[in-house]
Each structure stands twice: as structure tokens, then as C-alpha cells.
């Protein structure tokens, strides 16, 4: 899922400093699961904003909503009847949701309430970790199911570099060396011959470097 975390409150307060009536909108998708932008976080953020503004003698009116998803037009449509009553939206969706909300409602500004960090997994309650960088051309079958692009600090396709020490990456003793993980896994799978294959120069055009990406499925299009 997409992992995010709440922005510092002072940053959000600065965005809405001149607003008196705002809409705080959460998303029930990924950001609910990683406790960054679901209904609970909408309540907490709204309450915090009200307290901060009350304290400054500058009260603010907030409507709290949480949509099924902010990345699908049909759910965004649900705000149509009331959004015009507000001066701004603080969206607790990922960057995609914030943008899609802004695309659909052009009259008022839409501000990000969270920072979108990565595509990752819940390692344990309260701990999330990156796994994929959406390069658009998966090679996990060659690397023991561990992605060198996401897991190696240098995204080396033919690692590890000389900075791998006792299973850790040179940048931080708390960061596992992605290539050590790949090596260990290939050994477990008795597929170490894969390690000696030179991974060819990558076509990054399937990734972000090819410009904003789009997928069109004619079989599904209306």
C-alpha cells in the first residue's frame, strides 16, 4: 500500500492561516491502514486545528469527512453538494488523492495534510517499510523476490557494493543491505547462479523517467 505520515501541524496551520471555514477530508484506502489519513486522523487533526486556532483567538469552522477513496471519481463526487460552502480543503489522502480532489474541484485550494512516503508494507503494528519504487518493469524473479531498486540505497542492479558490512548498508547500521538479503534468499532457493548473471542496463523509461505514466485497458474502458 501507499504509506504516508501526518505533516507537522505548524505546516498545516500556515497553509490555512487566512481561512475561517475548511473541510478536512480523509481517505479510507491505504492511508487509513497506515494510520495517516483515515477517519481517526481526520478527527485528531481537526480537533488539533480547532484548539490551535481557538488559542489564537481566531476560531475556525471545520467539517470532517472521510471518503471511501480519493483516487476514484465516484467517491470524490460525494463532496459536490457541500464543498462550495468551504474556503479550502485539507486532504489526508496520498499525493494522488490530493491531486485528484484538486482536479475535480477547481474553485477552492486543496492542501496536503500528509506527506506521501512510499509503497510499502506493515512490518508490524506501527512500523512500515518500503518495498517497491514502481519502476514499471519488475525483475523480482531474478533477485530472489527482493527488489534491489527499492532496497539498495544506490539501487544497484549488480550489487552489493563495497560498503556492505555484516548485512548492513554503509549509509546506516540500521539499514539492511538489500544485496545481502538477495544473496541470502538466492542461496536458500539454491539459485546462486542468478547472482553471477550481469543484470543488463535498465530501461528506466517505464519508470518515472518516461514522464507521468498512464495505463489504458481497452477491454475495460467504457
Amino acid at each position: 500500500m501507499i504509506i504516508g505520515e501526518g505533516k507537522p501541524i505548524q505546516e498545516i496551520l500556515a497553509m490555512i492561516a487566512d481561512k475561517k471555514k475548511i473541510l478536512v477530508v480523509g481517505c479510507k484506502g491505504c492511508v487509513t491502514v497506515c494510520s495517516a489519513g483515515g477517519q481517526k486522523e481526520v478527527e485528531i487533526l481537526s480537533s488539533t486545528i480547532r484548539l490551535a486556532r481557538e488559542k489564537e483567538d481566531n476560531p475556525i469552522e471545520i467539517r470532517e469527512e472521510t471518503l471511501e477513496r480519493q483516487c476514484d471519481p465516484e467517491y470524490l463526487e460525494q463532496m459536490r453538494s457541500y464543498i462550495d460552502d468551504y474556503e479550502a480543503v485539507v486532504s489526508l489522502a496520498c499525493g494522488a488523492g490530493v491531486q485528484f480532489t484538486a482536479e475535480k474541484y477547481r474553485r477552492i485550494p486543496v492542501y496536503p495534510g500528509i506527506n506521501t512516503n512510499f509503497i510499502g508494507v506493515t512490518v508490524e503494528q506501527g512500523v512500515w517499510s518500503e518495498r517497491c519504487q514502481a519502476c514499471g518493469s519488475c525483475i523480482l524473479h531474478k533477485t530472489g523476490g527482493i527488489c534491489p531498486i527499492a532496497r539498495c540505497s544506490k539501487s544497484l542492479l549488480n550489487g552489493p557494493c563495497g560498503g556492505s558490512s555484516k548485512g548492513k548498508c554503509e549509509i546506516d547500521p540500521d539499514v539492511e543491505c538489500g544485496w545481502q538479503l538477495i544473496y541470502d534468499r538466492l542461496r536458500e532457493l539454491e539459485s546462486l547462479e542468478l547472482f553471477e548473471e550481469v543484470v543488463p542496463i535498465k530501461d528506466w523509461s517505464t519508470g518515472r523517467d518516461g514522464g507521468p505514466r498512464r495505463i489504458i485497458r481497452e477491454d475495460l474502458k467504457s
Binding site: 540505497s153 544506490k154 542492479l157 557494493c161 554503509e170 550481469v198 543484470v199 543488463p200
Partner: peptide
Amino acid sequence: SGDHQRFGDHQKAKNVYDLDSVQLIQ
């Protein structure tokens, strides 16, 4: 491949790594 920018004087830089050292040899 080069030391990671974490060690240097511009830690906020974006690294490139379009190629790695093996691919540079190639």
C-alpha cells in the same frame, strides 16, 4: 558506483544511479 551521498557535504542531493559500476564497465 561511488560512495553514497549520505557521507558527503551535500546529503540532500538526489543520486542518479542510472547505471551501476558493472554496467559502466559494459
